[in-house]
Design a protein around this nucleic acid. Structure first.
Lengths: 105, 105
DNA sequence: GCTTGACGCAACCCGAGAGTTGCAATATGT
DNA sequence: ACATATTGCAACTCTCGGGTTGCGTCAAGC
C-alpha cells in the first residue's frame, strides 16, 4: 500500500504527468500521439510518462485496431494514496493530541 | 489549493523526506542535528529538506533557547492534498460514469 | 508494391536536485 | 578567555530524470 502511494506521489509530482492525466480526464482515453498533438512535448516523452503511469496503475493500456494503443484512466491507486494521506495525517494529529494530553496532565 | 497539493506531492515523492517526516512523527519535534544523528544523511542535507518541507507547510520551525531550532509537524497541507486527490478521483469516475451512460443510451 | 502513419527502442543532452565538504558566526559552559 | 557545540551559507560533485533526435518496424490504404 505504501509502495502504491509512493508511486502515485512520484507520478503527480511532475507537471507534465499532471497535464497528461488532465488531458485524459477531459478528453477521455487517448493514444500517445493524440496526447502529443495536444501537449507541447514529444510523443516519446509522453510514452515514457505513460509507462511510468502504467507502472503506478494510474493508467491502463488498451490495444485496439490498427496497432493503436489507447490509455484509460484508473482511479484506484489515487484512492489508495488518499487513504495513505488520511492515515498519515491522523497519525500526526494523534501524536499532537497525546503530547497535549501529556502537557495538560 | 492545487499549488499546495503539488508541493505536498513533491515533498512526499522523496524517500529521504519521508524518513524525516517519519522520524518527526515517531520522535516528536526535533532539530536538524537530532535528525542527522538518527538518519544516515548529513545535517546540511536534512536542513535543505527541512526548508523545502517548511515551504510546503508540512513543518514549522520553532526558535528555542541556545540558538536551537526545532521543527514541528503540521498536517493541514496533507489534508488539502487529500481533498485534492479525492476531487481528482471523483472527477475521473464521473467521466467514466458519463461515458457509460452515453454507451447505454 | 509502395507509401503513409503510428508505435517501440536506443542513444544522447542537459538541467535540477540530492548529498557532501568546508568555513564563518554565534552562543553556551568552564 | 577559551573550548565546544550548533546553526547558516556557499561551492562543488554526481547521479537521475525529463526531453529530444533518429531509426527500424509493422499495419492499413491506395
Amino acid at each position: 500500500m505504501e509502495a502504491v502511494a509512493e508511486q502515485v506521489f512520484v507520478a503527480l509530482a511532475d507537471p507534465s504527468r499532471r497535464s497528461i492525466l488532465a488531458a485524459l480526464a477531459s478528453g477521455g482515453p487517448a493514444t500517445a500521439t493524440d496526447l502529443a498533438n495536444r501537449l507541447p512535448i514529444t510523443r516519446q516523452a509522453i510514452a515514457k510518462h505513460l509507462t511510468l503511469l502504467t507502472d503506478a496503475g494510474l493508467v491502463t493500456p488498451e490495444h485496439g485496431e490498427r496497432r493503436r494503443v489507447r490509455f484509460r484512466l484508473h482511479s484506484a491507486p489515487m484512492q489508495v494514496a488518499q487513504q495513505f494521506l488520511a492515515a498519515m495525517a491522523r497519525d500526526w494529529d494523534s501524536r499532537l493530541d497525546a503530547l497535549k494530553d501529556h502537557l495538560e496532565r
